[in-house]
C-alpha cells in the first residue's frame, strides 16, 4: 500500500522454546539489519524466557503456497486413509503394533 519506503524492512521471527524442540513462527518485526532483528526478536518475543534460540528471515524472502489453491493443493491427501495406522484392523492381541 505504501509507496514511500522509510520504514525498516520486515522480518519474520522464529523461536525455539527449549532445546530439542523445533523453531516456531511467533511474529514479525521491523529492523534495519539481521543483527538488530535478532536482538529485537529477543526483546519482543522472549521477555519471559520463551526461547533459547531465535531465527529471523526477511519477510520478502519467504515463498508460500497460494491460499486460493488450498483445496486443490492439499485435498489429494484426503482420500488416502491407508497412510494412517488406524486404517488397518489387526487382531486384538496385536493392536498395539
Amino acid at each position: 500500500m505504501s509507496t514511500v519506503q522509510n520504514e525498516w524492512p520486515l522480518w519474520e521471527v522464529f523461536v525455539r522454546s527449549k532445546a530439542g524442540l523445533d523453531h516456531k513462527h511467533c511474529g514479525s518485526l521491523h529492523a534495519a539489519d539481521a543483527k538488530m532483528a535478532i536482538q529485537m526478536g529477543r526483546d519482543v518475543y522472549t521477555r519471559r524466557q520463551e526461547g533459547v534460540s531465535v531465527w529471523v528471515v526477511r519477510s520478502d524472502q519467504i515463498v508460500a503456497s497460494d491460499p486460493g489453491d488450498k483445496a486443490m493443493y492439499f485435498d489429494p491427501a484426503e482420500d488416502k486413509v491407508y497412510r494412517h495406522p488406524t486404517f488397518y484392523e489387526l487382531p486384538k492381541s496385536l493392536d498395539h503394533m
Binding site: M1, S2, N6, E7, L10, G27, S28
Partner: peptide, 15 residues
C-alpha cells in the same frame, strides 16, 4: 508491536 504487526498483515504499512 504485536498488534502493529497484525495490522500490517492486512496491507497497511507501519509508517
Amino acid at each position: 508491536l504485536y498488534l502493529y504487526a497484525a495490522a500490517e498483515t492486512l496491507g497497511a504499512s507501519r509508517d
